Simulated scan of single mutants.
Amino acid sequence: MAVSSLSLSWVSTTIYSKLNLPHYNDLSRAAISPLHSCNRITCSGEKASNGEGHCRRITLLLGVGALTGNLLRASSLFAEEIPENYRSFVDTEDGYSYYYPADWRDFDFRAHDSAFKDRYLQLQNVRVRFIPTDKKDIHDLGPMEEVVPDLVKYKLAAPNQVVTIFDMQEKNIDGKNYYTVEFQLTSPNFAVTSFATVAIANGRYYTQIVVANERRWRRVRNKLKVVADSFRVLDI
């Protein structure tokens, strides 16, 4: 469902008061703090010499038995071929995964669980965070047409930013429901365009943001759409 140049001044904040969500714009700066999750896997979409993709374990703090169990739960993710020039990030401890461009590097983004950015364009990045919730599914918050405008207007935008929503999509993958929105935030001096995907699982409200400078959006949109479409929540 496409929504162009949507005025959002009428939107209620009732849904988000139930979740006690903080304002996402307050989290717009990177901070020097370690990622707290301790069971993460990155896999490259580039092929090794033996024809198979290669995986790298990050910050391994689990015992052998726990590691085996978590890898078994993540094994289905590796069954799908990773797109060329992308890597797969899998956090079996916190219950989510996604692809990101292979030439991006990880960095610390304040109050987020994971983040990767372009080597040269810091505004071009992906990040994921989650907060506790007693909801079981994204549908428990309400229909997409209500939830998504509230999310963008009151949680992702600053008060001085003009919001334009280009598209909203709902999908169900392996029994999990997701809302995804493509939107633009325009400030007096600059504008950014983003994909945001939200889902609820494991007693957590997950949000993935994929963003780029508005001037580059046409060139990189399809590349970043792969990242947004790849976001999954896992059972933990």
Score class of each variant (00 low, 15 high):
T197H: 07
M144Y: 01
V162N: 04
Y206G: 10
E146C: 05
M168Q: 13
V148G: 02
I138C: 04
E182L: 13
Y178E: 09
M168S: 09
R204I: 08
L141R: 02
Y178G: 07
V211C: 12
G142Q: 06
V198H: 00
F195V: 02
L156M: 14
S194R: 11
D134A: 12
K153H: 11
K171N: 14
P149Q: 08
M168E: 12
T193L: 01
A158P: 05
I200A: 09
G142D: 07
L156Q: 12
P149M: 05
V148L: 09
T207F: 05
V152P: 00
P132W: 07
V148Y: 01
T164K: 10
E146P: 07
S194N: 15
Q184Y: 03
V181Q: 06
E146H: 09
E146F: 07
D150N: 11
A199C: 08
I209T: 13
Q169H: 13
F190E: 14
N172V: 15
A199G: 07
M168T: 15
K136P: 00
V181P: 04
D150L: 01
T193M: 11
G175D: 12
T180H: 07
V210E: 03
D174A: 15
H139Q: 14
A157K: 07
A158F: 07
V210A: 08
I200P: 04
L151Y: 04
V147M: 05
K153T: 02
D174G: 13
I138M: 07
F166P: 06
F130K: 12
F130I: 04
L156H: 04
L185W: 00
V211G: 08
V181H: 06
V192K: 01
A157T: 09
K171A: 15
V152H: 03
P132A: 14
I209P: 01
L151N: 05
T193P: 05
T133Y: 04
D134F: 11
T164P: 00
Q184T: 15
T133K: 01
V162S: 05
L151G: 04
D174W: 11
L185I: 00
N189Q: 12
G175R: 12
Q161D: 13
T207D: 08
I173D: 15
Q161N: 11
A199S: 15
Q184P: 10
H139W: 10
L185D: 00
V181D: 00
N177S: 15
P188R: 02
T133R: 05
T180G: 05
K153M: 09
V181Y: 02
E182M: 12
F166Q: 13
E170I: 00
I131A: 07
I138T: 05
G203M: 02
P143G: 06
V152N: 04
N172F: 11
T186Q: 12
